[in-house]
Design a binder for these strands. Structure first.
Lengths: 171, 171
DNA sequence: GTTGAAAGGATGGACCT
DNA sequence: AGGTCCATCCTTTCAAC
């Protein structure tokens, strides 16, 4: 499966009707995108051409976003993973824009969500060690005003997958 | 970049000395693993063979874990993402093993960490909607005893990447 | 590290069911 | 729609230098 993904320019995000074969293909590819067309065709019980056409359509529809290599954080010396719970007092647009920019600029921020409820944001931050986290933290609060921060340190990654559960036969 | 990743059988996890070229290669591959060897060689300013050898070694050393397709959760109808904070009263081995098994068995659990501090675990759970989350929750607490659960609902994914920050020139 | 050659896979066309 | 065959191009893979 090597192909030119255009970084998914105009993906028609909205709903795409998947059948069982599509789901099987997706489920294979999100486990191992290095499978060859032949292998995929084999395992879904179809032949190359239709499988190839489906994959192309799934890419065009934006169901398949990209194809990436997953690296081992420990092998890169990134031994500390923090989940950061953030409360803010500021709720205006300008603040949000600056906060967002600060997060996007920092590569150690792997994930960031705006939440419902009394905690406003959660971040996942992957760094070398606690000192590196502190540098990140100081730098962040130096750039944008934050009311309250709680950092949860991961002791053990029990499970981590890039594979989404693929719902069966709906829509 | 299509190749037979053996699901990374005996990866020598421990520290691997990376040079600048390795880091450049990793950084390219974790953004787009569909790049061809030629393209990678071009961009790192080397030729195919050495690049290929480096990639092979990085895979064998477990620095590159796998190659996957990243799907769009919304396109799959998975519109709700929850972060779940869990406190438990049980701390024996048997309970932990059952809890772990319960998490690994449930595909909607994308990520699970054991934490330091007063919250014991955090999960990331991706489901179709709030009702699906409730089903997950009921099923989980039916299977293992849990003292206290707080669910944080994501309203907006501000940032999400599979790319780790690659530290420069250390080790 | 470079070149190049052999093998295998990707892409897409033609045609059939 | 999907299946088969095929032709061409591109990549991977590895040998020889």
């Amino acid at each position: 499966m090597s192909e030119h993904l255009p970084p998914n320019a105009g993906a028609a995000k909205t709903n795409f009707r998947l059948d069982d074969v599509d789901r099987k293909i997706l489920s294979l590819l999100q486990e191992d995108a290095s499978l060859s067309l032949d292998q995929i065709a084999d395992r879904v019980g179809a032949s190359k051409t239709p499988v190839w056409n489906r994959i192309r359509k799934l890419r065009e529809a934006g169901v398949i976003r990209r194809q990436v290599a997953i690296l081992d954080p420990e092998a890169l010396g990134l031994e500390a993973c923090f989940f950061v719970l953030i409360r803010t007092s500021e709720h205006d647009k300008d603040w949000a824009a600056r906060f967002l920019k600060a997060l996007r600029e920092r590569p150690e921020v792997i994930e960031a969500h705006r939440l419902a409820g009394d905690i406003d944001y959660i971040l996942k931050v992957q760094v070398r060690n606690a000192r590196a986290y502190d540098r990140f933290y100081q730098s962040l609060i130096g750039e944008v005003k934050i009311h309250n921060v709680t950092a949860l340190l991961s002791m053990e990654e029990i499970k981590a997958t890039s594979a989404l559960p693929i719902p069966d036969a709906t829509r």
